[in-house]
């Protein structure tokens, strides 16, 4: 069997900052994963739809605009509704320290903020897939 870790990297909402998302997407590819990048300005519905069809193990969201407290939990809610509760959620971007506990409660396993190295993200994924 030739199983690959599949990850969807998505940007919900109107935020156009895409450098971080693309950087992470490339880093995960270089770590041997199959990465589906959906581009900017996605609705939570579109992201969840893609995650289900692509049968990903992880969904990683990126937001720098400040709308994470609304959009991240909305993706989590829809994912559960569509039967994707076993898909692991994580995220990153410009996210204040004090917002992180709330996002974790909403189902996000980890949040990476500016300056996070790609190897931290790769390690997180590889560890999660072991224990999942």
């Amino acid at each position: 069997m030739d199983r690959k870790i599949r990850v969807l990297i998505g940007k919900p909402g109107l935020d156009g900052h895409d450098r971080g998302a693309k950087y992470i997407a490339r880093a995960l590819r270089d770590a041997g994963m199959e990465v589906i990048y959906t581009g900017i300005r996605q609705t939570p519905e579109a992201i969840v739809n893609a995650a289900i069809q692509e049968d990903v193990d992880f969904v990683g969201l990126s937001l720098l605009s400040g709308a994470h407290n609304h959009l991240f939990p909305e993706v989590a809610r829809l994912l559960n509704e569509k039967g994707g509760s076993d898909i692991i959620l994580f995220g990153g971007g410009v996210i204040p320290e004090e917002d992180i506990p709330g996002l974790k409660k909403a189902g996000f396993k980890a949040i990476f903020t500016p300056g996070a190295s790609s190897s931290e993200v790769v390690d997180f994924i590889e560890q999660e897939i072991q224990t999942h």
Binding site: R29, D30, A31, G32, E34, G39, A46, N49
Partner: peptide, 17 residues
């Protein structure tokens, strides 16, 4: 690496949902 960046969906966003 055996990994892949799959970006074709990017251009098919009209039908994303």
């Amino acid at each position: 690496s055996g990994g892949a960046l799959l970006g074709d969906r990017l251009r098919m966003q009209d039908h994303a949902s």
